[in-house]
C-alpha cells in the first residue's frame, strides 16, 4: 500500500512538473515512478501514516495561527524544552510526517528522537508567548 502511495506521489510530482496530462507523458511518469529506487525495510503500516499525514495538513492553518500569536506577543516569549511521545521509529514515513507536523508550527521544533524507558519520544524546543502580565522593569 505504501508502495502504491509512493508511486502516486511520484506521478503527482511528475505531472505538476511537466504540466502535461497526455497519455504518453503519463506513461513516462508511471514508468519513472516504478523504476526509481524504492525504500526497503520492514512493512510500513498505513493507518498511522495517514493519521500523521492528516496532522501535517492540519498543521498548516495552525502554523499561521501560531505565527500570529508570536507576532502579537511582541518580545514576551518563553523558551522551554519538552518531550512528546513519538511513533514507532522503524516506520520512517510516520516519523517523517510527525517531524514535519511538529516543526512546521512556529511554536515547536524537533531536536531529536530518543528511545527512553517510556518508549520513543521527541525532544522538542518550544517558544511560546509568555502568559500573564509582562514583568515590570525596575528603574
Amino acid at each position: 500500500m505504501v508502495f502504491l502511495l509512493s508511486c502516486l506521489f511520484r506521478l503527482l510530482l511528475w505531472t505538476l512538473l511537466t504540466a502535461d496530462l497526455s497519455g504518453v507523458n503519463l506513461a513516462i511518469g508511471v514508468g519513472l515512478a516504478l523504476l526509481l529506487p524504492h525504500a526497503r525495510g520492514p512493512r510500513q503500516p498505513m493507518a498511522p501514516a495517514l493519521r500523521a499525514l492528516w496532522r501535517s495538513l492540519i498543521a498548516v492553518p495552525l502554523a499561521y495561527g501560531e505565527a500570529l500569536a508570536l507576532i502579537g506577543s511582541g518580545d514576551r516569549e518563553e523558551e522551554s524544552w519538552i518531550e512528546r511521545p513519538a511513533g514507532d521509529p522503524r516506520h520512517r514515513l510516520l516519523i517523517f510526517l510527525e517531524v514535519l507536523a511538529i516543526t512546521l508550527t512556529p511554536f515547536t521544533i524537533v531536536l531529536g528522537l530518543s528511545n527512553g524507558p517510556r518508549g520513543p519520544h521527541y525532544t522538542i524546543h518550544q517558544l511560546r508567548p509568555r502568559r500573564g502580565k509582562p514583568e515590570e522593569v525596575q528603574p
Binding site: A67, L70, I71, E79, T103, P106, I109, H125, L127
Partner: peptide
Amino acid sequence: YLSKLHKLSV
C-alpha cells in the same frame, strides 16, 4: 539560536 530558527520558520 533556536529562538531565531522559530522566527525564521515564520
